[in-house]
Nucleic acid binder design. Structure first.
Length: 275
DNA sequence: TTCCAGGCTATGT
DNA sequence: ACATAGCATGGA
């Protein structure tokens, strides 16, 4: 995709494969705030960007443009991916509907924390809880950095409850301490199978959350998280219901190495049916 | 009031 | 290896 990088901004002129509403509201990320129509603040670790659509062009304003070129996955060819996953009419409609989706390159720590909170929860409250956790991080002036692992240790179970984490508060408290035993940078090179079994050993991480961490935190695009919405998609396509484990395997086999991208288009599409 | 939200842990068979 | 109760919380 074509874009320009300046010292304090990125400019995207062709926005057919970039729609900030699609990108942020398709359920992959919980660390943003909406200021208005096509005007969002985005947070990632200690970085911040404002994304605004002006006269058909996206202006991404940030102190660290290089970071957000990678974050927004601007160098990946989504046209090729869309062709690859277009296996039937259903997914074609989903791709058309969410044409501006891109899978973000998020920070692993935020993905792990965010998706533990996501279990049996709704996106609005997940986002609110993540915002409150962020306020424990370093004050960068106009915003807060996400807390480092060290700082996360200062948050009590009661604090997490007060942030609306509910019964997941104790999971967060325990996971933060489990993460002391590994170097997250080292896990980046692990194969997917090894990673998944390690992730499943973390408190509050089951098969679905593990798949989300693999897809959104590690960029393992041959993973297919199955939640309540994807269950509906599976029934729509295959006209039968299976265990979530089998549905995930079937969907990876069906969509192939880019199944994770298909998952995002399908999730965003199916969720739009209601409301 | 009941159901549901990007499910998981614990505890049974 | 699979089935199910219980779980915090707020909006529909």
């Amino acid at each position: 995709m074509k874009y320009k990088v300046l010292s304090d901004k990125i400019i995207i002129e062709d926005s057919t494969d970039f729609d900030i509403m699609h990108i942020l509201e398709c359920g992959q990320v919980f660390t943003y705030t909406k200021n208005g129509e096509y005007d969002y603040d985005v947070y990632s670790l200690d970085n911040f960007a404002n994304v605004k659509l002006i006269d058909g062009k996206y202006i991404i304003t940030t102190q660290n443009p290089k970071y957000f070129v990678n974050y927004f996955d601007l160098d990946t060819d989504y046209n090729a991916i869309k062709k690859d996953i277009s296996k039937n009419e259903y997914i074609k409609k989903a791709v058309e509907f969410g044409h501006g989706i891109r899978i973000l390159h998020q920070s692993l720590l935020e993905v792990i924390i965010g998706f533990i909170i996501s279990a049996n929860n709704n996106i609005l409250r997940i986002t609110k809880t993540m915002q409150k956790i962020r306020e424990f991080g370093e004050n960068k002036g106009s915003y807060y950095a996400f807390p480092t692992l060290e700082r996360l240790h200062d948050i009590s179970v009661q604090d997490f409850i007060n942030m609306g984490a509910g019964y997941r508060a104790q999971y967060l408290f325990k996971v933060i301490r489990q993460l002391d035993n590994v170097d997250l940078n080292e896990t980046l090179s692990w194969d997917t199978k090894t990673l998944k079994s390690w992730l499943l050993s973390l408190m509050g991480v089951g098969p679905k959350v593990a798949d989300c961490i693999l897809l959104f935190g590690y960029g393992r695009c041959d993973c297919f998280p199955v939640d309540t919405w994807i269950e509906k998609v599976y029934i729509d396509i295959f006209e039968t219901k299976q265990s979530r484990a089998k549905m995930s395997i079937d969907l990876v086999n069906y969509f192939g190495k880019n199944a994770g991208y298909a998952q995002q288009y399908l999730f965003f599409y199916r969720r739009s049916f209601v409301k």
